[in-house]
Simulated scan of single mutants.
Amino acid sequence: MPIRLTIRQLEYFVAAGECGSIAAASQKLNVSSPSISSAITQLELELGLPLFVRQRAQGLKMTEAGKTLAVQALNVLNQATELTRMAGAVSNTVQGPLRLGCLVSFAQIVVSSLRRSFEANYPDVRMSQVELTQNQIFAALRRAEIDLALSYDLNLPPDLEFHLVNELPPFALLSPEHPLAGHDSLTVYDLAVYPMVLLDLPISSDYFLSFFTRAGLSPIISERTRDMAVMRSLVANGFGYSIANFLPLNDLAPDGRPLKFVPITGDVQPIAMGVLSVPGSTSSGTHAAFVDHCRAQLT
């Protein structure tokens, strides 16, 4: 009798193995724990092999058979995703689900309006989003957990494709009372003598700090935060200046205090914003349409 497996069973099995527990896989996939548990049990019965050792205190541990199956299951899931992309390319239609990953900085400012306008133009598309760090975006694309990602061209691996949308020059955020707030432009030499509030996100922080390193300077980092809203509030309340590339929609911090934005000139490189994908992804009509929509809306 042939073995009957489903893509859903393999997806739940791989997620449980990566997360180490049914509960964590349930949260990751937004699927009930009993559904995941039942799928794994059915998979084990179909194969006639135990895939996990259930440990009350330590969650799930893969058996050797489970580890072998997990490698093949990932291949099958990736191939299934590619088949879906090919089908979309053949039909050249803009429809179906579109899972978007995005850096936190984009999620706060542009993603909601970008989704709304894209879905208004293409009502047969159902978008979802997840906020990730740069390295998490790379991993999620490779595991086919997301289809596309809004990101920067920082530390990009060679196995992913970057589709340029816009180039964003850096600027300094200052409170109106800051001694440099009245300047039309600033250099890192102007900024280096004042306290800095560093937006301490992975990879992005290295980019900001490289401005000073190239000039042989060391910034005075007085505060660090991974949250853009917190960063703006700290700046507006006089804890220091900060640097960013994406202008907020208004000149107010979350607590209502005003901010000033001053361009940074000199040996500072703009950062490229774009859509990141696995190779060949934008042959899909839906994916290509989203890249074009980003260029129309964000340029």
Rank of each mutant, 00 (worst) to 15 (best):
M127Q: 01
P202A: 07
Y207E: 15
R143Q: 15
L168Y: 10
L217R: 04
Y189T: 04
E223R: 09
P169W: 03
F212D: 02
R126E: 02
F138I: 02
P219Q: 08
M127E: 00
S185M: 14
S210A: 06
V188Y: 02
P179H: 05
L148H: 06
L141T: 03
F138M: 00
E167Y: 13
V130A: 13
S222I: 03
Y194H: 14
A139Q: 15
F118M: 06
L148F: 08
D124A: 14
A181G: 07
V125A: 05
R115P: 08
D147A: 06
Y189R: 12
F162Y: 15
L164V: 13
L173Y: 11
E161H: 14
L164P: 05
P195I: 01
E223G: 02
S222R: 04
L174F: 03
N166R: 07
A215E: 10
S218I: 15
P219W: 04
Y122M: 14
L168P: 01
N135V: 14
F211V: 04
P176W: 01
H183G: 10
P179Y: 04
P202E: 07
L201D: 09
E131S: 15
E223W: 05
N166W: 01
F171G: 02
L156G: 09
P219Y: 01
R143N: 15
L164I: 12
E145D: 12
A172F: 01
V188R: 05
S204F: 12
Y207D: 15
D147E: 06
L154W: 13
S204A: 15
R115G: 11
V188Q: 07
S218M: 14
T213L: 11
A140I: 05
Q134G: 11
T133H: 00
D124Q: 14
V193P: 09
P179R: 00
D200H: 08
T187Y: 02
Y194D: 12
V165L: 07
D124C: 10
L148K: 05
A139E: 15
A181R: 05
L180H: 08
L160H: 13
A172L: 11
R115K: 14
S210L: 01
A149Q: 04
D147S: 06
L201H: 06
E223H: 10
E131R: 14
F212H: 08
L180D: 05
D124Y: 12
S185C: 11
L173P: 05
V188I: 10
L148V: 13
F211C: 09
E177P: 01
H183D: 11
Y122Q: 12
P195M: 06
L199H: 04
F208D: 05
F138W: 01
D124M: 12
P158C: 11
Y207W: 15
R142C: 10
N155K: 15
F171A: 05
D200C: 07
D153S: 10
P176E: 04
A120N: 14
L201C: 11
